[in-house]
Design a protein around this nucleic acid. Structure first.
Lengths: 233, 233
DNA sequence: CAAATTAATATGTATGCACATAATAACACT
DNA sequence: AGTGTTATTATGTGCATACATATTAATTTG
């Protein structure tokens, strides 16, 4: 029996995945420790560590100090979703991007908005509504609130030609945020904007970002019927 | 001017993020190379490399050999979505999990199903439909196709007490898969199952997995109205 | 001057070693 | 038995060094 050598972390990774896939290591099993694997694979422990870390990041392995590494019993599928600027998203499909600002005003947001942003309930915010088009058909409706205290430059922008979606990326840094996906039924107003039937099922993205404690922006994106978000496993 | 020391990769990472956030490094900018940064930070290049790699994985930095590392001009937000077993998902919310198998039969799937799976169009498959409940209310409707050639053991399962969602995880390994999220309008049949109104907007997950070339399973999960999938940025 | 070759450079990774850290197991003590 | 302390152990990480690799820049060649 010849021991093939696994000299780089990628090959160690594929071998580890092969063993799990081939049921040589059963879900729930404790696998050999890094030192032993390094010995077996004929490489340094660092290399094994790199490989195992990579596999653990996908959820297939569970690692805990001292406890060791085990094959995840119920592997949680982890899908990486890339949310690009809408213009880029459309252009990458080879479609023509279009943009129309609908409204822009400064008002005190409803409580559900200020609440979601952890913002003062009585402070006026910039409210921008706009439509993104792909090949001249409605693609996504953007309903956005911007905190003018955190992003004062936004007050000087009318968002008529450049979308808030894009402008904010280069003008309003954030430290963290939340994103949620849901399905909502089109109101009559939304249906008119997106040129679809009332009560159409719309794919919806809600996103709030903060800069430290300060709320930067909250956006709801309503995508036209049929829209779908893909990822690989 | 005292140079604070960054002795571990996490602190280097936060410092890098701080500089980007503070606009010391502008989007599009080429940042100093690893050797220089290591010198400046008073650590090894390996440490800087680890930190920059981590930041690049989030999409905030773009790295290319020889070309160097630059701040992403239009950072693509990357959200990691964890898709767990539905039972786990419900139990983690502190709700009671319930399960009901609706139908199970072996039929030749419609063309859109076999097509999505890259499977032979005339081969019969196992078709299982089931309902997942949270606190006795409908939570998700699972409509699944399983290739019995790839997963022969599935033929011996009736899926009356254990869901295919869960059974497959421990019985059918896969090498890769695709997942897509969308919003669909409830058909009258789906509405009856999920106890919601017809044409309700349902959050939908479509998922296909393969084992090498062989299609393992395709599932469509329809979640009840109001369901939402969250992630952090 | 264009094409092909070669050099230069920044990131990518492997290695041996050392020590840090978290979690468990073993043990001593009351 | 119950509790607190002390090894023990597997992963986590840092470092110096060396070499690999991709890509660009410089240079030679036809």
């Amino acid at each position: 029996m010849n021991t093939p050598s696994f000299r780089n972390w990628q090959s160690v990774q594929t071998e580890v995945l092969r063993r799990i896939h081939a049921r040589e290591w059963i879900p729930g099993d404790l696998i050999p420790n890094e030192v032993d694997l390094a010995l077996e694979f004929g490489c340094a422990r660092t290399t094994v560590n790199r490989a195992l870390r990579a596999v653990a990041e996908t959820g297939v392995l569970d690692r805990r100090r001292k406890a060791g590494t085990r094959v995840a019993a119920q592997p949680v599928a982890k899908a990486m979703i890339n949310i690009a600027v809408i213009r880029t998203e459309i252009e990458e499909r080879g479609q023509k991007y279009g943009y129309q600002r609908i409204t822009r005003n400064e008002v005190v947001p409803p409580l559900n908005i200020s609440g979601a942003m952890n913002a003062h309930a009585d402070r006026p915010m910039l409210h921008v509504r706009a439509l993104h088009l792909a090949d001249d058909t409605p693609y996504a409706f953007e309903d956005r609130w911007i905190d003018p205290v955190v992003v004062p430059d936004a007050l000087a922008e009318n968002f008529e030609t450049v979308s808030a979606n894009e402008w904010l990326l280069t003008h309003a840094p954030y430290t963290h945020g939340e994103i949620s996906f849901a399905a909502t039924s089109a109101t009559i107003g939304e249906a008119a904007i997106l040129q679809c039937l009332e009560h159409s099922a719309l794919f919806t993205i809600d996103r709030v970002t903060w800069d430290g404690d300060a709320p930067v922006t909250k956006v709801r994106l309503l995508f036209g019927p049929g829209h779908c978000l893909r990822a690989v496993l």
